[in-house]
Design a protein around this nucleic acid. Sequence first.
DNA 1: CATGAATGAGAATTCATTCAT
DNA 2: TATGAATGAATTCTCATTCAT
Lengths: 216, 216, 216, 216
Amino acid sequence: MNALPEPASSSRTEQKRRAILAEATTLFLRNGYRGTSMDEVASAAAVSKQTVYKQFTDKEGLFREIIAGVAQNADAIVETIRSAFGAVRAATREELETGLASVARAYLDAVLEPQVLSLRRLIIAEAEQFPDLAESYFRAAPSRGIDTTAACLAPYVESGILVVTDVQLAAAHFAYLALAVAQDRALFLPSRLPGAKERKRLATAAARAFIAAYAA
Amino acid sequence: MNALPEPASSSRTEQKRRAILAEATTLFLRNGYRGTSMDEVASAAAVSKQTVYKQFTDKEGLFREIIAGVAQNADAIVETIRSAFGAVRAATREELETGLASVARAYLDAVLEPQVLSLRRLIIAEAEQFPDLAESYFRAAPSRGIDTTAACLAPYVESGILVVTDVQLAAAHFAYLALAVAQDRALFLPSRLPGAKERKRLATAAARAFIAAYAA
Amino acid sequence: MNALPEPASSSRTEQKRRAILAEATTLFLRNGYRGTSMDEVASAAAVSKQTVYKQFTDKEGLFREIIAGVAQNADAIVETIRSAFGAVRAATREELETGLASVARAYLDAVLEPQVLSLRRLIIAEAEQFPDLAESYFRAAPSRGIDTTAACLAPYVESGILVVTDVQLAAAHFAYLALAVAQDRALFLPSRLPGAKERKRLATAAARAFIAAYAA
Amino acid sequence: MNALPEPASSSRTEQKRRAILAEATTLFLRNGYRGTSMDEVASAAAVSKQTVYKQFTDKEGLFREIIAGVAQNADAIVETIRSAFGAVRAATREELETGLASVARAYLDAVLEPQVLSLRRLIIAEAEQFPDLAESYFRAAPSRGIDTTAACLAPYVESGILVVTDVQLAAAHFAYLALAVAQDRALFLPSRLPGAKERKRLATAAARAFIAAYAA
DNA sequence: CATGAATGAGAATTCATTCAT
DNA sequence: TATGAATGAATTCTCATTCAT
């Protein structure tokens, strides 16, 4: 009956394993793949190098496991999108625009989380070295965000408020109208994330443009 | 069109200098900053390590000079945008949509050039290590692309075909409607660039959405 | 007499650490700071370079630790001086001259030890590079030798055999009368240290001059 | 008739040769033998490396020539001593003490010249690598200074003011009473040379002690 | 099982010296 | 003759990985 993946299992081994993953994640995100040494990982996790190697085989193995793990990170974003849409009760074009503005804002905030940005940077940096990881992250995160958005927009298409032939594409348009300006900038200027006022401006404008383009 | 004005000065020294820059650019783009060794650079350029060091002081110096140099890369994109807009003769909403579709396509093609993508990846990867370079590239390339777009859209605002209050923001919307889907994907999936058909689809849809949102 | 009190702690680590220090000391004294490579140190101590670096961080760190360590070297000289003075039982001017001659001789012998000379040379050579080390050595060794001498002369001042206003300066005069000729020469001519006869001559003459200058 | 060594001869070759010697001297004194590179020498002298090698064969050759050359440096000190003694007109013990104090002061000032100290440090540092240079410098400078002192003291022995059996040794005693305290310290603490007041104190005390020891 | 040490290679950088132009 | 380049080795330091205890 304990088929669940040992939620609180804490053999010493498991504890160390988790410590290693946690510290290594931090280090990889901060210093990149090449910029992180196994020595650092071991000492940050307060374990011996042997333990690291026994648990993860390789530096590459450790990296893969981590990147695979943080795909769950993406779940948080998906959940953000879904619940932001869930909070919307829109029967008119105007109501929908307002609703979408708040969705856009929530989406944007999620995507501008420093860890999310660091992860993006890390995976992009290693996209040629680890194409499979890049692909699986791409599917788990940006791509799935748009899928979710599409699913959430669908009801408004059915209800006739939106006039859309290709929902997937419309969802992408919405997402990138909301995100692209700030996200693109943030990739290059990590230390200067937009503040609340700017985020609001961008979210509002995205919702307005999207409604203008796609509302009945 | 890519006739670099072949600097008249071609002393042996200058030639070697250029060879080093060329090879190092290739290597940095392919393998990243940390993934490229000065030994590789020297032997790829068929010069001695001494020559590399005498010309560029440092690995960092070499890197900086290269990144600074490829800002000119951005000029090509700006030129592409400008000339694509220049080819448009639109007096009506429908003509403008057609025109913008071709602009979007040209813009997209420029941005999906493998070297442009690699450069983006490289600079994003090193954005925390070399924030000044990342910033100056951001200004020289994506940011300037949008400025250019704004400048090219302005006449249509004045002529009344477009109804826009914030041209800069509208330009960003146009640019990211046109580019974001493919560019985002291409950062993660370097080996699977969209083909002509897909590009056409994206460009057309971007122009349609933009016109729907912003035309009178 | 040279029974280093064999530190009880002799884990493998400690043993290696000591081996490294010992060999590095030899090498630095023989070949100087710049003339000694970390590779040499490691292989002379029969350990890996890693071990050296893990224990001492740096070449500079290793050097500093060694120089700091040999300040104890100075203790031996101080002890020599003190015990040479201790052996003196002088109630008259003539007895004191004889006593001081033997002190001078002991002092001279201590200072002409090849290792002491090499250390002097090494620290002088690096005095501009490592001013703090030079200063701390200067205080621990030559300076402290003179302090000790002053302390040992004091009783004779009190007993009236010596007539001295500035004991510190008188001690310096004694010390340098005894040492300077031979020490100066030895710094430049490492391979030709004075023999016993010459040392005796110098010590005797120093004592005579000092007594003539300072005795009642 | 121009048997003199071309006093103002200035073929371009000779000029360059002198420039190299001058700059290399500065560099060797400042940074030591190992701390000075042939590249630095060439560029400081504004000549090509070829020229350096053609003129001096070797780094070692260059070094030897320089050290040999600065033996003349010592001439200045000898001259200082001689002229300081020359200024003394002493018929009594008291006058001689005063005179010797001023000799001591002049001698001390000469020896504390930063360049003289640097040269001492340099030669001591390389005494094991270049024993012949160290020896020849020792003879040309400290040793010859004492010879000169001895020669200058001789008249006072003959006139009976001083009672000395071994003039050479007495001269050494005088010299080191005057110099050793400050010179020893200066070798270790290059940046803290004694000021005028301290120098005066040392010179006066040296003269007093010497007279007390050796005057009739 | 975990600690320290070892291995073996590789990176960045510098040097003394020599060749070609 | 002088300049830049080349050579080839050395130096400091770091890394990923594996033994031995």
